Simulated scan of single mutants.
Amino acid sequence: MNDILIVDGYNVIGAWTELKELQKNDFESARNLLIDKLSEYQAVTGWRVILIFDAYLIPGKETKTKKSKIEVIYTKKSEKADQKIEGLIKKLQNVKTRIHVATSDMAEQWAVFSQGALRKPSRELIEEIGNIEREIKKSTTNERAPSSITKIYLDEAIREKLEQMRRGF
């Protein structure tokens, strides 16, 4: 079974305290931080992740980019993220694919659910990402209990480079 996570970008940013505060002064940084956090999520889960942003801040034609392994779509000027998400569900839905949609918009949750996709409230996604970050931090810290297994300790620069490689940067 292939899992796909479609994320309503501005909806998740609005539900995430840290990103919501950052967005007040710098939309671009909030978007980039969300992309970074979703790339961690993608690396751990192996899911295909598609991030949708309404184009009201970037008017014009629909644009698609790939940052890390995250597909980022800015809708065209007259198209809302909800419309794009519903269109993607229709396009991607099949018996071998399970689609999850992250949004806090209740109307959108019911719309995607009625199309056979699974609802994932923004808060749930934020909590999952927090759990992943805590697990990664715990597993990469050098302060582990001594054991009989020989370990190679890496300095912070090498560890950071390996982490970037793992995330596809």
Rank of each mutant, 00 (worst) to 15 (best):
D26R: 07
D26I: 07
F27G: 07
E28Y: 00
A30G: 15
N32F: 10
N32K: 11
L33I: 14
L34K: 13
I35W: 04
I35F: 11
D36E: 10
S39K: 06
E40D: 08
Q42Y: 04
A43R: 15
V44H: 11
V44C: 08
T45C: 14
W47V: 05
R48H: 07
V49Y: 09
I50T: 04
L51S: 07
L51W: 09
I52A: 05
I52R: 09
F53V: 14
D54P: 13
D54V: 15
D54A: 09
D54L: 14
A55F: 07
Y56V: 06
Y56L: 09
I58N: 12
I58Q: 08
E62C: 01
T63Q: 13
K64P: 03
K64M: 09
T65G: 12
T65E: 12
K66C: 08
K66R: 08
K67N: 02
S68T: 00
V72W: 05
K76F: 13
K77G: 14
K80A: 07
K80R: 08
K84G: 04
K84D: 10
K84H: 05
G87M: 04
I89P: 01
K90Y: 13
K91C: 01
K91Q: 03
Q93H: 15
N94W: 06
V95C: 01
K96D: 14
K96H: 14
T97I: 08
R98A: 15
H100Q: 06
H100P: 00
V101G: 03
M106I: 05
M106S: 01
E108R: 00
Q109M: 11
Q109H: 10
W110E: 13
A111Q: 03
V112C: 04
F113D: 11
F113C: 11
G116F: 02
A117W: 02
K120P: 00
P121V: 05
R123A: 13
E124G: 03
E124C: 13
L125W: 02
L125G: 07
I126K: 15
G130Q: 15
I132Q: 05
E135Y: 03
I136D: 10
K138S: 12
S139L: 01
T140K: 14
T140G: 12
T141L: 02
N142Y: 01
N142S: 07
N142T: 12
A145G: 14
S148G: 09
I149T: 00
T150Y: 03
T150M: 01
T150F: 11
